[in-house]
């Protein structure tokens, strides 16, 4: 049975999440993949404001296909998370608490995740069409010039994910 989560997800709820548990997320999440991560970290390093306050937020590693005129969003499955490993510790040190992607992470990532009591979730890769059905609002909020890699704020209902690495560092990856 999946555990239902509504954003913003508070510390006590996040700490109850256990690796392997299936969850359904409802509320707001932010998209960011390779290029957006680089810009977010550059902004933090330069002590500039990030385009959205990452504190206690959820970031989803995705670059959707363009929506048709009658659609909220196009296909929107997760991209591989390991490419974000270099950037994630800086974001977690600045308050990011939940990341959604696919595949395993580096040891350095997991170490930072435990220190910052964050959680890493995975969505199933290659289910872009199916996952798009959970998105009910889609607003482009930053880095328009990155095109498919721009940051969007999505409102989702029952977005399915699996807890891959919990805040204690337990992992579903062998």
């Amino acid at each position: 049975m999946e555990k239902k989560l509504t954003t913003p997800i508070n510390d006590s709820t996040r700490e109850t999440l256990i690796a392997g548990q299936e969850v359904l997320i409802s509320g707001y999440i932010y998209t960011a993949r390779d290029a957006a991560h680089k810009l977010l970290v550059d902004a933090i390093n330069k002590k500039e404001k990030t385009p959205f306050d990452i504190k206690d937020q959820i970031v989803y590693y995705v670059g959707p296909t363009p929506a048709r005129p009658n659609q909220v969003i196009g296909a929107c499955g997760p991209t591989s998370s390991y490419r974000m490993d270099k950037f994630s510790p800086t974001l977690m040190e600045n308050g990011l608490k939940i990341m959604i992607g696919k595949g395993p992470r580096s040891d350095a990532f997991t170490k930072s995740l435990v220190e910052n009591e964050a959680v890493y979730l995975i969505a199933i890769g290659g289910l872009g069409a199916k996952l798009s059905k959970t998105v009910i609002e889609n607003t482009k909020i930053a880095y328009n010039h990155l095109e498919s890699e721009a940051i969007h704020r999505l409102k989702v209902i029952n977005f399915p994910a699996i807890v891959a690495i919990d805040s204690k560092g337990n992992s579903i990856f062998k």
Binding site: G74, A75, G125, G128, A129
Partner: peptide
Amino acid sequence: SILRKIIENQVIAKTENIPLCQDT
């Protein structure tokens, strides 16, 4: 369950005009 979802995904893609995967 993942294999079932992959099968479901291609039905949604076909019938609702959404690409199978965002990485085209």
